[in-house]
Every structure is written in C-alpha cells, then in structure tokens.
Simulated assay, not measured.
Amino acid sequence: MTEEIIIAGFGGQGVLSMGKILAYSGIMQDQEVSWMPSYGPEMRGGTANVTVIISDNRISSPVLKKFDTAIILNQQSMDKFESDVKPGGTLLYDPNGITSHPERKDINIFKIPGAALAAEMGNPKTFNMIVLGAFLKVKPIVAIENVKKGLEKSLPERHHKLIPLNIEAIQKGMVNVESVNSI
C-alpha cells in the first residue's frame, strides 16, 4: 500500500499540522513516511501545502506531480491541484469559500463542512482534525490509536490536554463526510 497525498489551503488552517500528524501516525504503524511542506513567505493567510506519502515500501522521492488524494481547503488550492489527482483517486474538500466546486467524473469526490463543524464545536482550531477524520473515514490508511500516538508525538506536552478534543473532532469528521461523486 502506498498513498500519495497533497493537503492544501491557507496558512493558519492547520494544513502543515494535519500533514505532520498523518505522517507521525504512519510512523506509529511502522510504515515508510515522507512529509514535505511548502508555503509562501506570508505564512498565515498565504497558501500552504504539504505532500505526505505513507507506504509499506521505501519511498524513492518525496516530489510528486500526481496524487492519489487531494485534501483541498481553499479555492486557490482547488484551482491548482484538482487536475493533479490521479484518475480513480480521491478529492476531499471543505466547501466553505469554494466558488468552483470540483466537477471531474473520473475521481471520487467527498466534502466535509469542517469550518462549520469546528464552529459548532466552539473551537475553530479543531478544523484540521475534523478534515483529517473525514479523510480517514474515506481512506482508513492509519488506525485511530496511531493517530492518537501521532498527536502525542507532534503536539508539545503542554498541549496534550487537547488530545481528547482532537480525537472528538476526528470522530466528528468521520461521521459528517459525504460523497459528492463516486466512480
């Protein structure tokens, strides 16, 4: 199994953190992992993306042109990466702020109202974990217990008290993801 993923959105949406937690979760399952962030100089508010590869085999290069899955959190990222999903692949997006929804017929498309659900939870910082939960429902490439270990590894110890909230957000994402188009 090899899963090549791009996560893209605005800086401040937790894009890089989501990728790091996913990567650590893969490590906790004894898988090979690559995590390669990319962001503009403006950071918060600018565009950011991260490529994550999780595989049972050695990863030859972290540089990808096409992806098995794209997790899209803003319109600029949709415009840039929708066409880079491999035929038969998966695109997961939050419709908040998306004006041109994906229309490809050769990929599986899912949406998760992460921003709305995070507001409902009373904590906008849970947004990225809601989206991660939606992804893991669609593609269960890492087990939830390994995501918890990944959170423990990637969060500073002073923030470990937030792990239960993050797990709750992941579960909320798993329950609320919906299929837009399945091939």
Rank of each mutant, 00 (worst) to 15 (best):
N57S: 11
M78H: 10
A119K: 15
M18A: 15
I6K: 10
V175I: 12
I53F: 06
P62D: 08
I107D: 01
P37Q: 03
G150F: 02
P102T: 06
I53R: 05
P37I: 03
E157L: 06
I112E: 02
F127Y: 14
P87G: 03
T126M: 14
A23F: 12
A70C: 08
Q29P: 01
L162S: 10
N108E: 09
E32C: 14
Q171M: 12
E152W: 04
P62I: 11
L162Q: 02
P87W: 01
H160E: 13
E168L: 05
M129G: 03
M1R: 09
N123F: 06
G12F: 02
M1T: 13
K137M: 07
K153H: 01
A119R: 13
M78V: 05
V177D: 04
I170Q: 00
F67Q: 02
A116H: 09
F135H: 09
G26P: 12
S61M: 01
F67P: 01
N166K: 07
M1P: 06
V63F: 15
G14H: 11
F127I: 09
E157P: 08
L155R: 11
N57C: 07
I183Q: 07
P124D: 04
N74F: 02
K66C: 04
E4A: 12
K149H: 00
P37R: 03
K149R: 14
S182G: 01
V33F: 09
A23T: 13
K149V: 00
I130G: 05
A116L: 13
H160L: 14
A23G: 15
Q171L: 14
M174N: 08
V131W: 00
D56Y: 07
Q76S: 13
G19V: 03
F10V: 09
D94M: 07
V138R: 04
P95G: 07
K20N: 07
L91T: 05
K149D: 06
V175M: 07
S17D: 07
P124K: 13
E168H: 11
L162N: 05
G173D: 08
